[in-house]
Design a protein around this nucleic acid. Structure first.
Lengths: 336, 336
DNA sequence: GTGAAAGCGCTAACAC
DNA sequence: GTGTTAGCGCTTTCAC
């Protein structure tokens, strides 16, 4: 460590006590203006920067927030991360990042590691949050906001869009565009609250338009490209060929588009495909993906704000924050 | 902070001095096995975790490494980040992340902020590294490895692929596939060492096959999709319509593919398009992108290893590390 | 309004 | 092999 100039050096050089210097840099107690200026000047001259380690040790505040993610290179994650990082920095917090590769044991390890590092709060992004995680985090007493497909099941602060109505909206959109046989590919396991919400939105839209619900048009896959490809292939090998496939994830939706192509169907001419999330690839892929836009950056921003609020001991009135979504109508869905 | 159990508590409960506890947890000096077991047991019981803040304060080692990036949500960056994160964790280092959005002032700020946080080392990822950055970082005395398109110009540790030969290889590959009019879209400014290297590789391949170099087939763009689209459009509006466009970035290459489509050319039937980097979209886009594969994860891993080496005071023998690249032959380039 | 002194949790001489 | 002690750089009573 290069930065060898300490509060002592400043005090000595300014001819005051270290307490006075401390008061100046923290603005914690009144200091005579003259002395204040002198100290400030010495700080300027020496390039003194307070050592946050020492400060944290006594104040018990590390100014560190842990962020646990499945994988930074997932664009859903990294776009949220942008929001987290920027707002955290605004509030003088730094981010300690931990990849888990969606491995539960690694998630537990990450939490523990971050806790050891004295983080004051945490944002937990996980595809499959389980009760164990939540219990453990609660026991640790770390103020945490969750962004997880399954977090809504637990009594913890979360931020998300309203999945029921988002799915409803897109299904409705598809119906309005003249689709009648709409396949639904979910990107998480069947038994989670999230998928129940989404399924419910889907069914509600169908019901409203008197379209019969057909279970053979439903698949449970995963978020990635390959799983979307698989699921769509399986649907296209079934008895009923849909006129639209709604995949609740963009990368998986791109997989579905490719699966359709490979089965000899043109998207959107033969079959429409819709996605969910509106990550970067949705805007770039051809055909450009019609999808449910989620405000990813804002979700990160809101999540970190909630954490900071909790750290400060303020009560967060609304624990389940729902941000607005919208249908982003692009080229992968066609009027029929 | 919940974790109220300190080394003192452990010492008292185990009936030993705090130094003994310290010795046990750090394995720094021999301790009688019996006592050691006792201490370990108490640690287990109490769930004691050493406070790294306090430790860092005395050892002067923060176990923190700063990573400055243009933007986490860029897939080139985030794939490198995966490597950095995983290896850092292996060596018990944590990552302090800072987004700069490629803004020079913000880059300086980030460096300063990280320095204040007592980082021991740094990985600097920047599209346009300038002398100012390098000088400043050197002056701070923070061991740093650079991953930057322009870092090779400076006398600092860098990790990259051999851009001259990578560009040569791809150009050669294109020629072997029967292409004669190969446009080149660069993804950084003309005056950087990187682009000179790439251009040289391109020219070398051309020369070897007695193909005349034609400046009107060269463009300088930027890494993003839109800039690739623009550059390709401009080429296709020129006098000479190429049979291949080689774009030194995948996202920009995808932009070029779309530009070709929009101009009525089919890729790869009418025009081939090749990329550079092999990020996720290259594997997923249709046509799948023929591109130069860079070992992104490994680049991150090597970079962080170099930093850790420097922190430990070991001399890094090779300052300019070059990792192997390869041509990933997919579907956007066709035999002619 | 200012300084002296205690102490945050820990490591590392230094004695024994 | 073990305990005592002096700090690391800072904030925060507590006197003055």
């Amino acid at each position: 460590m290069k930065n060898t100039v300490t509060i002592k050096d400043v005090a000595k050089k300014a001819g005051v006590s270290i307490s006075t210097v401390s008061r100046v840099i923290n603005d914690s107690k009144p200091v005579t203006d003259e002395i204040k200026q002198k100290v400030l000047q010495v700080i300027e001259e020496t390039g003194y920067v307070p050592n946050p380690l020492a400060r944290s040790l006594v104040t018990k505040r590390s100014q560190l927030i842990g962020v646990v993610v499945p994988e930074v290179s997932d664009s859903f994650v990294s776009e949220i991360l942008n929001g987290i990082e920027e707002i955290a920095r605004m509030y003088d917090y730094d981010i300690l990042l931990s990849n888990t590769y969606s491995d539960k044991e690694q998630e537990m390890k990450s939490i523990n590691l971050l806790r050891a590092k004295q983080i004051e709060g945490m944002v937990m992004i996980s595809w499959n949050l389980e009760e164990d995680h939540v219990d453990f985090i609660k026991k640790c007493g770390i103020p945490t906001t969750y962004i997880s497909k399954t977090a809504r099941e637990f009594d913890v602060p979360t931020v998300s869009v309203n999945n029921e109505s988002a799915t409803y909206d897109m299904t409705k959109h598809l119906i309005e565009k003249g689709h009648k046989k709409i396949a639904l590919v979910m990107t998480s396991p069947a038994d989670t609250a999230l998928e129940m919400e989404r399924l419910s939105g889907y069914k509600r839209a169908l019901l409203e338009s008197n379209i019969e619900y057909n279970e053979s048009l439903i698949r449970y896959a995963d978020v990635d490209y390959a799983k979307g490809y698989e699921a769509a292939t399986s649907i296209l090998e079934g008895d009923i060929i849909p006129d639209a496939i709604f995949v609740t994830g963009d990368e998986a939706a791109v997989g579905a588009i490719n699966a359709a192509f490979d089965k000899g169907y043109n998207v959107p001419d033969d079959i429409s495909v819709a996605g969910f999330n509106d990550v970067k690839i949705a805007k770039v892929y051809r055909p450009k993906l019609t999808t449910v836009h989620q405000p990813l950056y804002d979700m990160g921003a809101v999540a970190i704000r909630m954490v900071i609020k909790m750290i400060k001991g303020e009560e967060v009135e609304e624990k389940k924050v729902e941000l607005p979504h919208r249908i982003e109508d692009r080229d992968s869905v066609k009027n029929r």
